[in-house]
């Protein structure tokens, strides 16, 4: 047995175990940075049909089937540039903020759609899905909270979101509601 060759190939194996995830992280950070050309607040929203949710949480293979993410209550400051990266974790959705005339923008699985706008006057605005995406479509709502100077989220008690009746959010078993078709 040639020890030099053994050690070299073992190092190659160990190196690849580190290099592969490093490469993935590198490409992912570049893909995300591509949308940050100008100084702006970049927010990623993922659409989840089971439960009917727009969320700021990361939705990937490891958690999609396990737990339901928190619905988004996205906070921006009035007047700043906002870039929202939109993803879908399952089917076709459509993003819109009707009051701000943002969208509707098609959100397809495996793609990233981007909307840009300047955050308007302070207030809370409803985020909708405008393509029927499943039994929880009607309750697929989120809000964009625009803070004025000196305001905090505490100034906006959660009042805009109607209570969820058909698809209550209980933070787990994301897919159990999907059955009643």
């Amino acid at each position: 047995m040639n020890w030099k060759i053994e050690i070299a190939s073992a190092l190659l194996v160990l190196l690849s175990l580190v290099a592969a995830p490093a490469w993935v992280l590198h490409v992912e950070s570049e893909a995300a940075a591509a949308h940050e050309a100008s100084p702006a607040r970049v927010i990623t929203l993922t659409a989840v049909a089971a439960g009917g949710i727009w969320t700021e949480e990361e939705v990937a293979g490891h958690n999609y089937w396990r737990r339901q993410p928190e619905p988004a209550r996205t906070v921006v400051l009035s007047g700043e540039n906002v870039v929202i990266r939109l993803k879908s974790a399952d089917v076709s959705h459509s993003f819109s903020i009707p009051e701000l005339e943002v969208g509707p923008v098609a959100v397809e699985p495996g793609k990233v759609s981007v909307v840009r706008f300047v955050a308007p006057a302070p207030g809370e605005y409803l985020i909708q899905c405008s393509t029927r995406c499943g039994p929880c479509h009607e309750e697929m709502l989120g809000t964009l909270v625009v803070l004025g100077s000196g305001e905090t989220l505490a100034d906006y008690p959660p009042g805009l979101l109607p209570p969820r009746t058909k698809c209550p959010n209980h933070g787990s078993a994301a897919h159990s509601e999907g059955g009643d078709r």
């Binding site: 690849s16 592969a20 879908s88 974790a89 399952d90 495996g110």
Partner: peptide
């Protein structure tokens, strides 16, 4: 093949659930 397999596993865990 091992490296590809490893990348596939990473994609399965952190990639799209679709």
């Amino acid at each position: 093949n091992l490296v590809f397999f490893y990348l596939f596993l990473i994609a399965g865990v952190f990639g799209s659930p679709v």
